[in-house]
Design a protein around this nucleic acid. Structure first.
Length: 273
DNA sequence: AAGGATTGCAACCGCGGATGA
DNA sequence: ATCATCCGCGGTTGCAATCCT
């Protein structure tokens, strides 16, 4: 049957775009005295040249008195990631992933679903991607583009070390490359594990970042996790370095052995066609 | 200082569920 | 059972602010 647009063609002269303080005042005043009632008829009663949907959105995302503004706290960020991993990974039988921003918003008083969605897309999503994690399922990425990123990062890291080993940007790409390598190693281990322990241990149990999702990682501990002075092995160093990179801790200089020992090939041989 | 690129956020759009006639 | 309407959701866009070269 389909559905007609919220604002029909005869409403073409309705105002769109940013709200003015005068419009806000009208909407706020009307809702405070009458309640919002029917959103469709509200604009006419409130003397606004807007469609009801626009009014509802403005109220819900901006004018509501209980809205908490400002930066998200670390606690809120952790909660969002946690909730996204639990509420956001429900399969409906057709491999479609259902995200419930509004559901997540109910756990964060004063935050709107739109605000949380924006925060996810602009901050958390990038953090997870930088760690080589798939934001959709919170697991290490294994796609081909990801591998291409790895080679590029390694090239950049080697080039950076040659030019100025103390350059912070060189350290950053090395940390990123280390994270990608770690994820690949983890993925390989996971695959091996799942083939040898099939039936006993699902792949979900091999999820390396469980602590992040369930809030048990030192990443979100009250006190910053100390950056290890010594690394038990290169791989351990890679792991610790990745956590430090994620949280923004100062990354110890591992440029002498980290990338160069893990990757013996020259940058040219690593470039994909 | 200028202008192009990037980022962050408010707002819009289209879809589908819920509800009532 | 069918249809019309309302409401709310998630994805996307547009633009101002900020950053970078």
């Amino acid at each position: 049957m389909g559905r007609s647009p919220c604002c029909s063609s005869d409403d073409a002269n309705l105002k769109k775009g940013p709200w003015t303080p005068e419009e806000d005042e009208k909407l706020l005043g009307y809702i405070n005295t009458h309640g919002h009632g029917n959103w469709k008829t509200l604009p006419k009663h409130a003397g606004l040249n807007r469609c009801g949907k626009s009014c509802r959105l403005r109220w819900a995302n901006y004018l509501r008195p209980d809205i908490k503004r400002g930066r998200f706290s670390e606690e809120e960020e952790r909660l969002i990631i946690n909730l996204h991993s639990t509420l956001g990974n429900k399969f409906n039988g057709f491999d479609l992933i259902l995200y419930g921003w509004s559901k997540i918003a109910t756990y964060l008083p004063g935050r709107t679903d739109n605000e949380i969605k924006n925060f996810w897309n602009t901050h958390i999503r990038k953090k997870l991607l930088n760690m080589g994690l798939d934001p959709n399922n919170h697991k290490p990425r294994t796609d081909l583009n990801h591998l291409l990123n790895l080679t590029q990062l390694i090239c950049a890291a080697q080039l950076g070390s040659l030019m100025n080993p103390w350059d912070s940007s060189a350290l950053k790409v090395q940390a990123d490359a280390a994270q990608l390598l770690q994820n690949l190693i983890q993925t390989l281990n996971t695959n091996q594990l799942s083939t040898t322990t099939a039936g006993l241990m699902g792949s979900q149990n091999s999820y390396p970042y469980e602590g992040l999702i369930h809030g048990t990682s030192s990443l979100y501990a009250d006190e910053p996790a100390p950056v290890p002075q010594k690394f038990h092995s290169i791989s351990q160093g890679v792991i610790d370095n990745s956590w430090a990179s994620f949280e923004g801790y100062e990354i110890p200089d591992m440029s002498d052995f980290l990338i160069s020992e893990l990757v013996s090939e020259s940058p040219e041989t690593l470039l994909l066609p």
